[in-house]
Design a protein around this nucleic acid. Structure first.
Lengths: 165, 165
DNA sequence: CACAATTTAATTGTGTACAATTGAATTGTC
DNA sequence: GACAATTCAATTGTACACAATTAAATTGTG
């Protein structure tokens, strides 16, 4: 991989960038954006875990409750759109939330295919205990409001770019 | 949630930020950095899937192979340190990689507790077919080299901050 | 040396993710 | 109004993640 290096001068940075993207470093773990994302996402979930344990929720269950608190009730399909999850993930997850007493499920009267998911009284009450979580996490991440918003926007852009075809 | 708004003037932005972090929007799904991370990470994995299918690897298996290509061989423990995964995840994953013929496992002669993991010839050969993947993904993410590096660095910082203590 | 504490991988059990299939309900088209 | 195509949720099967436990090997200490 040294066949070009001998010729390189400062104004050949573009050539170096090309070389790098095709070269030995391209497969290095710590150069992968995908791994930085994967590791950061799991670290974030781990940071939520002790707080959510106190509520009796897992992290994906918490995301479902966020949607239900925001909407007052949804369908399996709309939860899937909001959270980018399919029924293969949501059906058993919602069954567990129902067993915990946090949501109720019923077939829609209008359309028997649709299952409506509504927070129970206990599920709604849980929101008060969750109110302090975002602030606690914001402290943990060590970024100010503006930087958090910027990173969030960047990640939303990235997700949109990746998920279109 | 309107008890303070009446008094707000432009120079009270800090008060608004505090209000927001404790207010109704704090639990909105799309305001969560955690969800932006979670969704982007899954979208990234989904973008890798068709490319890795061609190699017969899942995404976590690909990460293991990245480490093995880089090091020439590792141990279960060191793979866990590199990938932030424990033996509960790695043991069955490595068993599958072994069944696929991409790695070999053997107890260390020095220390019988340690299991060494080495790429087989087929596993090493796979690297050539993976060389084009980083570039293909870089095109998909729609960011230039500099922005990718900046986002990667920001995510590494975030992971480190979250995982300490 | 004895032996308690530690390290290392594997195992067990729970809960996601996601592809593929199934089956029931609805919609579009003639 | 039949009926093919579509939509929706659930199920099945595979593969992570991760907490907790187990068991073997090694290290540290008196």
């Amino acid at each position: 991989m040294t066949w070009l290096c001998r010729r390189l001068r400062p104004h050949h940075m573009k050539a170096m960038a090309i070389k790098k993207s095709l070269g030995a470093d391209a497969l290095k773990l710590d150069n992968q954006l995908c791994f930085a994302l994967y590791a950061a996402s799991r670290a974030m979930t781990a940071a939520y875990r002790p707080l959510l344990d106190a509520l009796g929720l897992t992290y994906p269950q918490y995301l479902v409750m966020l949607v239900l608190w925001e909407t007052g009730g949804s369908t399996v399909k709309d939860l899937g759109v909001a959270l980018r999850l399919d029924s293969g993930t949501l059906s058993p997850l919602l069954k567990r939330l129902e067993a915990l007493g946090f949501v109720a499920r019923r077939r829609s009267a209008d359309d028997e295919r649709v299952v409506e998911v509504v927070p129970t009284e206990a599920g709604t009450a849980l929101k008060q205990r969750a109110l302090s979580i975002p602030h606690e996490l914001a402290c943990r991440v060590g970024l100010n409001e503006r930087d958090i918003a910027a990173l969030r926007a960047e990640l939303h852009r990235l997700e949109n770019t990746l998920s279109m075809s």
